[in-house]
Amino acid sequence: MLVDAIRAEGFRLTKNRTALFWSLVFVPIIAIVIGGLTNFVLKGSETKLLGDTKMPPEMREALLNRGTLDMGGALVEAAASLANPLVLLFVLIGAATVYAGDYRWETWRLISARNSRINLLLAKLAVVAGLALAAMGFMLVADVIENLIKAAVFERTLTFTLTGEGAAHFIGYFALSLLRIVQFTMMGMLAAVMTRSLLAALFVPLVFGVAQFFTTNPLMQMGVMPDAWLAILVNPGSATDAIQAAIGGGERAAGLPDGILLKAWFSVALWTLAPLAGALAWFRRQDLSKE
């Protein structure tokens, strides 16, 4: 049963402390440390500037006008950038462990006879999605901590404003970031099943991720504009950007070319579902006697 497979896969992941540390904890810690240090460095620079008696009074006043720090707005902004390369890289480490672990540890033969192969693979996907969700949650916590440090260092007043529109933006950005991360891990799943290699599960999506950003210029030289079907289809990153702009509304949304959202959603769906379908089809007929 799928539920059994998900519970088992989740249980196994919770025992893999190394994978959990790198996927969930490392990036938030780095974010807090770097963010905190940056605030202290900026504060130091500010103090130095304020000590300059030749500073124009207007500038001094601007620096001393601390204002407020809106945690609600900060969270919405953070949600929009949760699928950043650093989070993506470290979630992929955990995802590669989940997808390729049974090949690496030669454990398929222990579990594959008693459950359908589709269930086993979908369970891995569900657990990786949970891992991505947790990693995003930890990143948001790190963002809150970083903002608390910022407020303390710069003596800014904390506020929390989240309107209905802001909440909708947060949910939209968060869901889109999750989809983007899961999309990358799908490529990892396909690579793991086809190559039985943990390294391939990690690096193939990374290579694809980097490569897609270099598609725009060559395509333009071939006469394919950035909003054309082909350009959007080969670059799901630009598709995600378009959808994110639409979620945010305002000028960015208004500036989107006509019909680009349809192309964007199609591209995102293609890059998410095609690797999944490929992995499932390959895995169903795979010889699992030799992991």
Binding site: D4, A8, N16, W105, T107, I111, A113, R114
Partner: peptide, 30 residues
């Protein structure tokens, strides 16, 4: 297969798990 248990060649397990955890994991799988 739910009525069948098996051990094919020398079994291997996720190295970070204890023997008890391996059995708990497989119990969940099954």
């Amino acid at each position: 297969m739910r009525l069948t248990g098996s051990m094919i060649e020398t079994p291997r397990y996720p190295p970070f798990m204890t023997a008890r955890q391996v059995l708990s994991w497989l119990a969940l799988e099954h």
